[in-house]
Amino acid sequence: MNRRFDIKHYQGFLAITCLCLFILYAPLIIVMIYSFNDSASITNWGGFSLRWYADVFTGPESEKFKLAAWNSLSIAVMAATVATTVATAGAIGMIRGGQFRGKSASFALISLPIMVPEIVTAVATLIFFSTIGFKLGTLSILVAHIVFCIPFAYLPISARLQGIEASYEEAAQDLYADRWRTFRYVLMPIMWPGILSGFLLAFIISLDDFIITNFIKGAGIETLPTAIFGSVKQGIKPNIMALSTLLLLFSIALVTLSYFIGKRGQEPHPTD
């Protein structure tokens, strides 16, 4: 189609889109490039090298990083598992529970962790744990992560469930399947891409959290983001750039995975 007469086309929008992507990616790509810098100075380029990656795994700070990585990963796995389970049950209750009093209140409650500013959640959680005398540490971090992961798991799961016709479950129940079997053998196989995608998003959100973790981690325990933040406060060092690059690529890999799983779930199933 001739672009001048294409009513969808606006001059300059492509340029702005490229600018937008440039702004989003330039800082990340530059840090990635400098993480391969052989020089100990972060300003001058001293040739390509993997020494800072070696430093992350074997250098003087490697023990700290490994412990922080272990904390981050174990908390993220547990928080995402619990949050996804809670969110799956919640999504079925909301989407397949018919019309009921308190439905919008329930939805508001589930969305609450997204709506409350992170710093406010952090303060409130710290005050809560300190009032009940709960010792700050891995468990307090885990509890807080479960809370804010729930809405992130809930969104893809409920979106998936909304796209599934209730006739499948009705057919199963007509054939005398109880509710558990209906869920296990009918609903679950259709909605699993949503559940998995919700799990992965919750996992990333937990892995990335800094503000809330920083408030309630207590002394002596670090996750990757709090360890990176502590380091950066004393200046950006090349090993931190290497560590950041690794974490960044890990997140991108997970999002890509979640994206393809979600896409697979969208493929039309036979009755559509």
């Binding site: 809670v86 079925i92 209750g93 397949r96 409650l109 729930i150 209730a166 479950e169």
Partner: peptide, 23 residues
């Protein structure tokens, strides 16, 4: 759709409890 409406209270309870108590 209301295929799970008799148990919706139980299904929503974990969300209510977790977010209610801890947020």
């Amino acid at each position: 759709s209301a295929t799970f409406s008799p148990v919706r209270g139980w299904l929503l309870l974990p969300s209510w409890l977790v977010i209610g108590i801890f947020l």
